[in-house]
Simulated scan of single mutants.
Amino acid sequence: MLPVKITKMSGAGNTFAFVDGRGASGWKDVEKHLGKSRTEIAKLVCDRVLGIATDGFIVIEDPSEGFDFNWDFYNSDGSTAEMCGNAARCAARYCYEHIGNKEHANIRFKTGAGLVTAQILGNGKIRVKMPEARVLKNPIELETRSSVKEKFILVNTGVPHLVQKIHAFVDSVNLKDLAREMRAHESLKPAGANVTFYAEDEAGKVRAVTFERGVEDYTLACGTGAVAAALASSLENHLKVIEVQMPGGVMEVNFFDGDPKPLLVGDAVFVGDFQYNLEVVR
């Protein structure tokens, strides 16, 4: 049963480890043999030293009725998340090229946030129809431990995000401690929220970075964070197409009148296939 084949992928620098967990793959026998929960396995696989250094771990499973695949998603700390836009793009290409039917370029996933559909565009580009993007509170004012009041927009783009516009993107370097504090603010318990900062370069183009729950740091990219930044910018500028530059790459977000579910377009890249021995599990 060992080693386990794990595929590492990158979506704009956001990295994920994929396992084929369908019934025919034998993955469930591996899990039984290891005697570890998926939370524990996810932490090992994502580890920077004993794993393959990824931001997340995803098990692709046999579909429920009406879907092509189910997925079970874990952050690098073993926590779960309802949705991840970059993971959805990577999952779509993984399933299309590794375990799916290449005659069908449209893939329907069952996720914690419900149905997510993806379309293979070619040249490594994937278009994902994201969950409904909703403004939960605008503005929301949160007080820091030093009694400073910070204003954000609280949105949900599949997962909750606190979004704040900043004067210049370089300012985000000095805002990491604020993001870490706000991510687990008393007003947002128990789940907390990701924290996304964005700055406008010009109309329709923004730079953004997200402090993600479960990773507990800035990541190179965050699909739901890109949508969150684009939503905030769209509300201010009344634009329907927003280009979002994150540290790991560029994504495009499209909003449509009458449809609360935006489209997210970006890359999905195969990094490599690994034969992971899991000898660290004892």
Rank of each mutant, 00 (worst) to 15 (best):
S76Q: 11
A81H: 03
R127V: 10
D267T: 09
N174K: 09
V155L: 12
R213M: 06
R282N: 12
E97A: 04
L34M: 12
V116W: 00
Y94V: 00
Q164G: 04
H161E: 05
E236M: 14
M130E: 08
K8S: 05
G258R: 03
H161D: 02
G223Y: 03
S146C: 12
L263S: 04
M83H: 11
A221T: 01
N156V: 04
G122W: 13
W27M: 07
G85N: 08
N254Y: 14
K28I: 07
G192Q: 06
V241C: 05
E212Y: 09
E82G: 06
V128K: 06
V4K: 06
L220T: 00
E186D: 15
N123D: 15
D273T: 13
K125Q: 15
G114H: 01
G258M: 03
A193D: 11
T39D: 14
R93I: 00
L142E: 12
V269S: 09
T15G: 00
P139L: 15
P262V: 09
R48H: 08
R180V: 07
L50M: 11
N101M: 03
A113Y: 10
A226L: 11
L263N: 05
E61R: 13
Q119P: 08
T219W: 05
A53D: 15
D177N: 15
S146Y: 05
D177F: 11
R127G: 05
T54G: 04
F255V: 09
N75S: 03
V269E: 09
I166Y: 03
P63R: 13
N75C: 03
V265G: 02
V244N: 04
L175N: 07
R108P: 13
M83K: 10
G23F: 02
R180E: 10
H104C: 08
R108D: 15
D62A: 07
Y74L: 13
V280T: 13
L121G: 12
W27L: 11
G51L: 07
M246W: 10
T144W: 01
A203P: 14
R93W: 01
